[in-house]
């Protein structure tokens, strides 16, 4: 089938539809609103359920109710809207309810701004809601990748009865690219759980312990890490990035390699589980790792450091906390020069 030119957010909505989502509830917030707008008509066309909720809190609770009753559910939001959903994330985990959330990140604290960014890294990967829990987090670098990740996310969510977050960014949601849409699919097989009115398959029959859940987290950590390594084997300096900054790093590596610089890239596609296995492929020439992220503090760099500790990698770890937006190749090149010439302070 021919590729279609689609806006990131619309493509996210269509990917959910193709993946068999039968329930969406959401509330408008820039820059994720187009997902809500797109699905408001698309779900109706297909006889599926769309609700414009009165708040993000209501939206997530509608999703939880629908999920508990056996629907394939998705919601989307940004910034403060996701904060309001966090209570629901935790409740979902307490009842093992699968659902997918697209977080089209806007940068900043409080109201934040409308700039793109990755300032929600800690919140999305470390928890956010009350209690000990995990959600699988996919970080797409292109609209096609986002479509493919959403398409499989429901299967992962239902297999483990866990929440999945799509770690999108404002620019990814707003830009347009040519996309191959996957075919329509439905859930394979019947759920062996879910409220059906008989009292035999619902929440009441959830028999599990938090310790079993922890074992399951370990299984996901072992099996679901996704990454792409570019030129890392002989690299002296390796960028570590996810999402749009990672996409820019691909070009940066190409450009620096053309100049003879030995650089590489670990492009992370999942943020939880964190792809620690990617770091095993680092070569003996390693002189430094540079975490490239679009927030102001540097958040992911901590996971880079922890992973290095795990594998006893002693190279210094630097961070390019770019701030809001998407860095340009020349800006990352400049940072690299700074690191290489010893002008950049190491973080870990």
């Amino acid at each position: 089938m021919a590729k279609e030119l689609l806006k990131g957010n619309a493509a996210a909505g269509e990917a959910a539809v193709r993946a068999g989502a039968d329930f969406f509830a959401g509330y408008p917030i820039t820059p994720s609103t187009e997902i809500l707008e797109y699905l408001s008509s698309r779900m109706g066309e297909l006889g599926r359920t769309f609700i414009q909720a009165e708040s993000e809190i209501a939206a997530v609770n509608m999703v939880l109710g629908a999920s508990a009753a056996g629907a394939r559910c998705i919601t989307a939001s940004s910034g403060t809207g996701i904060s309001l959903k966090m209570e629901g994330y935790s409740y979902a985990e307490s009842m093992k309810l699968p659902f997918v959330v697209v977080n089209v990140q806007r940068h900043g604290v409080g109201l934040g701004g409308l700039d793109s960014g990755q300032s929600d890294y800690f919140r999305e990967t470390k928890g956010g809601g009350q209690g000990d829990y995990r959600r699988v987090v996919y970080a797409p670098s292109s609209i096609q990748e986002q479509v493919d990740m959403i398409y499989k996310s429901f299967d992962v969510a239902e297999k483990y009865r866990i929440g999945v977050t799509i770690f999108s960014e404002a620019v990814l949601g707003q830009m347009m690219e040519a996309v191959d849409m996957p075919p329509f699919k439905k859930r394979e097989g019947e759920l062996d759980w879910g409220i059906d009115g008989t009292g035999k398959k619902g929440i009441r029959n959830n028999k599990w312990t938090i310790f079993e859940r922890v074992e399951m987290y370990h299984e996901i950590e072992e099996q679901y890490q996704e990454w792409e390594n570019i030129n890392v084997e002989d690299a002296e300096y390796v960028f570590v990035a996810a999402g749009l900054p990672a996409r820019v790093c691909i070009d940066t590596v190409k450009k620096l390699r053309e100049k003879g610089e030995k650089v590489g890239l670990i492009r992370l596609k999942t943020l939880w589980p964190y792809p620690v296995k990617a770091f095993k492929e680092l070569g003996p020439n390693l002189k430094g790792l540079i975490s490239v992220e679009t927030n102001v503090q540097g958040q992911m760099v901590e996971d880079v450091a922890l992973t290095c500790r795990k594998f006893k990698i002693n190279a210094p770890i630097y961070c390019y906390a770019y701030g809001p937006g998407v860095p340009m190749v020349k800006e990352i090149v400049a940072k690299y020069e700074e690191v290489k010439s010893g002008k950049c302070e190491e973080r870990f």
């Binding site: 939880l64 109710g65 629908a66 059906d196 929440i203």
Partner: peptide, 29 residues
């Protein structure tokens, strides 16, 4: 919930929203 049958326990105050999700998914229940 000490009674028999299906139930869904939402976060404090959110039963109206959760019930909406359940009912829209299973309109005959």
């Amino acid at each position: 919930h000490s009674q028999k049958g299906d139930f869904f326990q939402a976060a404090h105050g959110r039963a109206g929203a959760a019930a909406t999700g359940i009912k829209r998914t299973r309109p005959d229940m």
